[in-house]
């Protein structure tokens, strides 16, 4: 599998996710935001503060050159995972519904976080079991998932919710921590699976997410 981690000005989890993919044997490279061709099987939009997040989070990054071709890429079945700031960018791109608002108590939260796997039948989550609890940390100020009632119903009906918070830390509606698009090739999630890929760093729950994707291509 060829993977590319997009580097926006202000990305800061780019090397974290790059290292995990590399360690797991993926053919991975960085893609500068000013490039214009997405020539990978998996595009990673990493965490961080693209353009400082001085406007709405992700609102400027969505206009970057590399993302001009993303609609065609997704339409043609290319896989995208957006983590944290990446999830925010995906909602700004409208590739995923809803929006990420300020955390309920208005503070940035960095903490371990227990999630429940709600859908194990996706390209991304297939090595987990439905109902299984995993620990991926969160670190965000704006991770409070919001969508209107109609959209939430649709997300539930289509089984698009992949991860839910067990103890909702930020006020997200329906405890949503991560969702996929209808087609199933775009995942956005606030928690950081790349931060749980070493027993030295508190656990390896995150590894299966990346392994699952890599193995799909073997």
């Amino acid at each position: 599998m060829k993977a590319g981690v997009v580097v926006f000005p202000g990305s800061n989890c780019d090397s974290d996710v790059y290292s995990v993919l590399k360690e797991l044997g993926a053919d991975v490279k960085y893609i500068w935001h000013g490039e214009d061709k997405i020539d990978v099987d998996l595009l990673v939009l990493p965490g961080g503060f693209s353009y400082g997040d001085y406007l709405r989070c992700g609102a400027i990054a969505r206009f970057s050159k590399i993302l001009e071709g993303i609609y065609d890429y997704v339409e043609n079945g290319g896989y995208v995972i957006g983590i944290c700031n990446g999830f925010q960018i995906l909602t700004e791109l409208k590739l995923l519904p809803g929006a990420l608002l300020k955390n309920m108590d208005l503070k940035f939260i960095c903490s371990d976080c227990i999630l429940e796997v709600s859908n194990d039948n996706t390209f991304f989550s297939r090595l987990y079991k439905k109902g299984e609890r995993v620990n991926f940390p969160i670190a965000h100020g704006e991770g409070n998932y919001y969508a209107d009632d109609e959209t939430l119903k649709e997300l539930e009906r289509n089984n698009q919710i992949v991860f839910r918070y067990v103890n909702n830390p930020n006020g997200s509606r329906n405890d949503i921590a991560g969702i996929i698009n209808k087609k199933g090739n775009v995942l956005g999630m606030m928690p950081h699976p790349e931060r749980r890929a070493s027993s030295l760093l508190g656990g390896t729950d995150g590894i299966r997410l990346f392994k699952g994707m890599i193995e799909s291509f073997k």
């Binding site: 989890c13 974290d16 290292s19 503070k107 940035f108 960095c110 903490s111 940390p137 950081h192 760093l201």
Partner: peptide, 14 residues
């Protein structure tokens, strides 16, 4: 206090 700081970014915090 410290939960308002990202103490894990960089994936080196043991």
């Amino acid at each position: 206090v410290y939960s308002q700081y990202d103490y894990m970014v960089g994936t080196d915090t043991v």
